[in-house]
């Protein structure tokens, strides 16, 4: 018995000495791993209330992506039953768990600004003014806010800017071409942005009051740059602006559909 106590004390002492040796090293390693993006800082206890303690421990244990995946499945189920509050709550968790997942932000926002909004919009059981102006718009705004949040987490994501631009530019959603143009402009500046973003920037700029000349110069520039930009939308927009700005006929681009 005496031996047992002596041995236990000895083992504990060794553990503590080892602890003293390693904790400094570990703190440094922790910092370096966090800085290089390999280690995600520990979640706050608030998350435990949201996802339950079981899932919380799974997150602590390094199963963060799995908990996010499970929550995505749960949200998918809620979507099928049009339980929009559940969808919103689940995606809040998913985005909190995996802020690095660009696509999760986009899908979360899409559920809000398109699916939920449309679902309220076409819900005949609700009074028309309410569903059109209040509820639907509410959900569109939530979707836009979700994308703003995503952009704060991933400022270099052209896709998120592009999505937000679409919500602003859509005349059934926020119908704000000036802010849409701004988002497209930001998207263009991000690495990996596809070329259509440049054209879309021009289209929204063209619709932004007072920016017609700027839009014309920009789109004409694209038109002259390469033939692949000669999409029907671009041609129609440029022709539109030519008329609006009274561009002399000699400087106008050829009309692909000349009046017969």
């Amino acid at each position: 018995m005496k031996r047992r106590i002596r041995k236990t004390a000895g083992a504990l002492a060794m553990l503590i000495v080892f602890g003293l040796v390693r904790t400094g090293w570990e703190a440094g390693l922790d910092r370096r791993l966090t800085e290089t993006g390999l280690l995600t800082p520990p979640p706050t206890l608030k998350l435990a209330d949201q996802i339950g303690y079981q899932a919380f421990f799974a997150v602590l244990g390094g199963l963060r992506p799995l908990v996010a995946f499970y929550t995505t499945l749960h949200a998918y189920d809620a979507w099928e039953y049009r339980e929009w509050d559940t969808v919103e709550r689940d995606y809040n968790i998913v985005n909190q768990l995996t802020p690095e997942d660009e696509d999760a932000w986009i899908i979360a926002a899409w559920h809000l600004h398109t699916n939920a909004a449309a679902s309220f919009y076409i819900n005949d059981a609700l009074p028309q003014t309410m569903r059109e102006t209040v509820l639907a718009r509410d959900w569109v705004l939530k979707g836009a806010a979700k994308l703003e949040e995503g952009i704060r987490a991933l400022p270099d994501s052209w896709k998120l800017h592009n999505e937000l631009a679409r919500v602003y530019g859509d005349k059934d959603k926020l119908a704000d071409p000036c802010r849409a143009a701004e988002q497209y402009r930001l998207a263009m500046g991000c690495e990996g942005a596809l070329e259509f973003v440049r054209r879309f920037y021009g289209y929204q700029l063209a619709r932004c009051p007072g920016k017609e000349q700027e839009a014309y110069d920009y789109l004409k520039g694209l038109y002259d740059e390469a033939e692949r930009h000669h999409s029907p939308s671009l041609i129609i927009t440029v022709k539109d602006l030519e008329t609006k700005l009274g561009i002399p006929p000699g400087q106008r681009i050829p009309d692909p559909y000349p009046p017969r």
Binding site: R22, E26, D30, L33, L38, T40, R64, E100
Partner: peptide, 10 residues
């Protein structure tokens, strides 16, 4: 400190 091994997820 087992949390350090959570680098796996990233």
């Amino acid at each position: 400190d087992l949390r350090l091994f959570n680098i796996v997820e990233n």
